[in-house]
Every structure is written in structure tokens, then in C-alpha cells.
Design a binder for these strands. Structure first.
Lengths: 203, 203
DNA sequence: AAATTTGCCTAACAATTGTTAGTCGGATGG
DNA sequence: CCATCCGACTAACAATTGTTAGGCAAATTT
């Protein structure tokens, strides 16, 4: 093929779109913007994708599946509640930092999904939240966690890990593992200093 | 004045816009949408406001000023670090729940501010974050807080309180004070159960 | 070698966008 | 009572939007 053939892949389109969606938002990013980022014309995009909504759909559900898969894995393998929660947080942080563009879209732009997809998406999101809650639940039953408001604790934890997306930079000093560790430590121990006088106090 | 005179105020426009901006986002809400919500024509809006950007500007900076004012007040009055942090969290929660529409716009839509305003806005946001960090800093110096990564702890706290905006409903069961209390408790104590055998342990 | 498919292009469309111009009746102030 | 102003209106604009039609050359298949 000639000089005009660039053999753009669907994944390239999705990646370029995700980058733009993160920068300017879904509705403010035009098909021409996406095309320009790939050095092609807007019409050419339609040889690879159905329409603009499909791009958002792919990004949101691709990310949703990654999260679902991770929490399922954790719930299958690890036993202890604290360990489970730490692994769940770690995986969450890894997925977010792995692709900040797509996870930004997943976190911010899902509201622009067409109504039909929107319902499916929110269902997946709720399921993920429920799985997370179950871990905290287990911890309370096993008497290793305080009997806090489960739903509330989970919302706090998830908001903390999701917020990473706002400040994380791949070239930064902090590795995903360190971030996950600090969040986990904070979630477990809190801010207040433990004034321990008993040598038998643990942990 | 005749039947066509509805005497719409600037505040009414801003409130209607905030509601729409929360629902559909800034760029997906048209001037005609805003006008329709007020039962007037799009052109009529321009007798009260300069342009669409001004509406976003008003919402974002109005909210920013409320937050700045609250943290300044806390830093002026309260002495103890834990008390300071609790009050700061309480005020933050109150401001967010007081007007969920505007705070949703403040939290999500500020990216659409014109470049000039955007810089000012981010400056205010950073100042607020700094004030918050100072409280945690004090707590560590006073030896009542664990020597955690300050910046990191603050990001976790702020993300938790901001997330309220996603699920809070004014008609819900939880009052702002309760929410603030639970967040504060979680922030202070964390999730892990304190196994205390010493009766002198506190708290 | 012929026929088809692939991957891009140009051109154009209808709809929607923010915004401006100009109008007009009623309220207000001298 | 006259002049001005206020607060809405209709009409229109230029630009931008997502998307489609149709073409054309290179690559692939038959």
C-alpha cells in the first residue's frame, strides 16, 4: 500500500482517544481531534469503529473487567482479611497506574455512556464495591477489624485509591507497590498515635 | 410588566446551570438547556450573564471561597490538632452537602474553566490542600499523630470527604455531622482492631 | 491476470452549538 | 405625560459536531 496507508489499529484509536478524553473530557474531544492525534482524517476512524460512543464503551468496560478480575482473584486465593484487603488495594492501584489515561476515563467520563451501557456499567461497579465490602465484613467477623460502618469504610478506601489517578505520574518517584502500601497502612492504622504502655500490646 | 416577564435572577441561572452541569456535564449542557429549565429563551440569559464560561467561573470560585474561608476559620480558632482536623473535616462535609449541585461542578467540571481562570482556581485548590497539610503537620509535631507521609494522608482524607458528593442525598438518613464524625473516626483510628490488654491504654 | 478487499481519502450533510442584533411591551422616573 | 430602561422575545449568524457517501490506490485473494 502507498504512502497514505498507516494501518491504524483499533487499540491505537482507543488509546489516543483515552488520552484526549482525559485531557479535555469526552464531549469536548471531537472525532477530528482523535483523528488528528493519529494523523488521519475523521472519516477514516469509521473503518475501525462503529461510532464515538463505542470508544467510550470499550474503555469503560475494559477497565471494569480488569477490576472485576482482580478482586475475584483476591477473593479466591488469599485467606486472612487484612492480607486480602491489602492485596485488593494493591491490585486496584496497579490497574489504575498501569494506564492512567483509560482509568481517568473510567473514573470520570462513564456518565457519558449511552443509557443502555450505563446501566450495565453501574451494575459492574456496584458488584465490585460489594466484593470489597465483603472483605471488610469478613475482617469484622474474624475480629481483626473494628466494627465500623462497612459501606462507609469501603467508600473511603475506594475514594482514596481512585484519587491516585489525579496525581500519579508514571515518571514519579513512587512505585505502585509503595503507594498501595502507604494507603493500606493508613487504612489499617489511621492517623492517631497509639500510646502504648503495655509491652504485650500488638501490633 | 407583562405575562412574559419572569424576573429571573443571576443566582437562579447559576443554580439551574449547576443542576444541569452535575447531571450532564458542562460541555453537554447547552445554553438552551439552561434557559429551558428556567422557562425562558437562550438569548435572554445574556441579559444577566456575560457568557457560558462565566457561569462555570461563578460556581467554581464561589465554592472555592467557601472552602478557603472554612479552613481559615478553623486555623484561627481551634488549638488541638485532632480537634482542628475534625473541625476542618466537618466544615468540608457541611459545605459539600449544603449544595451538592454546585460542589459536584466544583469537583468535576473545573477542568473546563478558561485557561486564565484555571490557573487561579488551581492555586486556590493548592492553598486549601496546604492548609490541610499544616494541620496534620502540627499533629505530628505535637506527637498526637503518627509520623505518616503528610501529603499522602491529606490526599486520602480529602478524597474521602469529596467522594461524599457522589452518594450523598439531602433526604438520606445521614446528617452531615454524622458523616463527618464517621470519616474523622476512620481517619483517626483506621480499620485494624486494637488488641488492648492494658487497662491504662488510651484511647 | 482478474477480482475483491483493505485503508485511507475528499466532500458533504443535517443538527447543534454559543452568541449577537434588533424588536417590543410594560415598568419606572422626571 | 413623556422618555428611558428593563426583561424578555424572534431571527439569524458562523462554527463545530458526528456521521455518511463515494472514490481511489495498494494489497490480497482467487
Amino acid at each position: 500500500m502507498g504512502e497514505n496507508i498507516k494501518n491504524i489499529s483499533k487499540e491505537q484509536i482507543v488509546a489516543a482517544a483515552a488520552k484526549l478524553f482525559k485531557q479535555k473530557g469526552y464531549t469536548s474531544s471531537s472525532m477530528r481531534d482523535i483523528a488528528a492525534a493519529l494523523n488521519i482524517e475523521a472519516a477514516s476512524l469509521y473503518h475501525h469503529i462503529k461510532n464515538k460512543e463505542e470508544i467510550l464503551d470499550i474503555i469503560c468496560f475494559d477497565m471494569a473487567k480488569r477490576f472485576s478480575g482482580a478482586i475475584a482473584e483476591v477473593n479466591d486465593i488469599y485467606f486472612n482479611a487484612e492480607e486480602k484487603l491489602r492485596k485488593a488495594i494493591l491490585h486496584h492501584v496497579e490497574i489504575i497506574t498501569e494506564d492512567i489515561d483509560k482509568s481517568a476515563v473510567f473514573l470520570r467520563e462513564w456518565r457519558s455512556l449511552p443509557e443502555n451501557s450505563l446501566q450495565d456499567f453501574m451494575l459492574l461497579r456496584n458488584q465490585y464495591e460489594t466484593e470489597f465490602t465483603r472483605i471488610v465484613e469478613n475482617g469484622i467477623e474474624e475480629d481483626v477489624f473494628e466494627a465500623v460502618d462497612k459501606k462507609f469504610a469501603v467508600l473511603s478506601i475506594l475514594s482514596s485509591v481512585n484519587w491516585i489517578n489525579e496525581w500519579y505520574q508514571a515518571d514519579g518517584k513512587m512505585k505502585p507497590q509503595e503507594i498501595a502500601q502507604r494507603i493500606s497502612d493508613f487504612v489499617m492504622g489511621g492517623l492517631r498515635k497509639k500510646l502504648v504502655t503495655d509491652p504485650h500490646y500488638r501490633p
